[in-house]
Design a protein around this nucleic acid. Structure first.
Length: 281
DNA sequence: CTAGGATCCTGTCAGC
DNA sequence: TGCTGACAGGATCCTA
């Protein structure tokens, strides 16, 4: 899914269309995608983000928490279209379609929640209790809010886990997913399988620095999933290509040393590394 | 408490 | 062509 930079991109993008606008109704076509009462009509007062969770606050003291998980997308259709989240044909397709799970109707347009795999959801919460929602309550700090010493302490607590598993866990660091975990470890020249307990303080500092840099760059370029586009040769690409050094680049050359990027499996996830820059300890 | 694996679900792609 | 298994930008639940 949509990791922190993509969710932040959605938050910023949607502000323009729905802030201070009235949501007039909800249509749900997949039961598990909507948690809460269906009668919902109120004005948007704020859009917030907690790690990968997007929260829309309303003037009726209620909030919607949206988690896109693996394949969620938010697509605004008003006078113009704005699509972000998991990149797919849906960005330009006619909506609603068979992957549309929830339709949020606004006075000035429609916000579609599409989700191929149905892992994502929208949950109705009392605004004052948003921070008590279990996922949000257990979230760790984001890389920018955390010191290298703090991350080092967390890493030491999980000394027997591969470092990639540690930084993917939202209770340890908030915001990283499979793309940015791989990119951060490449930046720090750390092999993802390295047992967390074996890392030096300097390596942990580099991982944190990598996470900040790679996610900041992604947010500044509009997230990796803003849209797909057709390249000059007619094939499709996405904005991931603009900054990814290893993610989905297996078979291509490492930008630092020229060695061939390979794909391996770590903590049950597809993982991309430069075998020369990231040696296993 | 941590660690590891199965699981939710739909869709696509490689290999036979 | 049709089938089968692996895998996918996530997180939780269950077990040891």
């Amino acid at each position: 899914m949509p990791e922190l930079p993509e969710v932040e991109t959605i938050r910023r993008g949607l502000l323009k269309y729905i802030l201070n606008k009235k949501m007039v109704g909800v249509e749900v076509s997949c039961e598990k995608s909507w948690i809460g009462p269906l009668d919902f009509a109120a004005k948007v007062t704020e859009l917030r983000r907690f790690g990968k969770a997007l929260v829309i606050d309303f003037d009726n003291k209620k909030s919607l928490m949206i988690h896109l998980r693996m394949t969620g997308q938010m697509i605004w259709q008003g006078e113009e279209r704005y699509a972000a989240g998991h990149p797919s044909e849906n960005f330009t397709a006619e909506l609603p379609n068979k992957q549309t799970r929830v339709i949020l109707k606004f006075e000035n347009g429609i916000l579609f929640f599409n989700d191929q795999r149905k892992f994502g959801f929208i949950k109705v919460l009392d605004t004052e209790k948003v921070e008590e929602e279990p996922f949000i309550a257990s979230l760790a700090k984001e890389p920018w809010q955390m010191t290298a010493d703090e991350l080092y302490e967390i890493v030491k607590r999980h000394k027997n886990s591969p470092i990639k598993a540690v930084i993917l866990d939202q209770k340890n660091v908030a915001g990283l997913g499979n793309i940015y975990a791989d990119e951060s470890l490449y930046y720090a020249k750390v092999h993802p399988k390295t047992k967390a307990g074996k890392l030096s303080k300097r390596e942990v500092r580099m991982i944190l620095e990598g996470a900040r840099k790679v996610m900041t760059a992604s947010i500044e370029s509009g997230g990796s999933t803003m849209a797909t586009y057709v390249k000059a040769d007619g094939t499709k690409g996405d904005y991931l290509e603009k900054f990814a050094e290893v993610f989905r680049r297996e078979g291509k050359k490492c930008g630092r040393c020229g060695a061939e990027i390979v794909k391996i499996r770590v903590a049950g996830r597809g993982t991309h590394i430069c075998p020369k820059c990231q040696k296993e300890k």
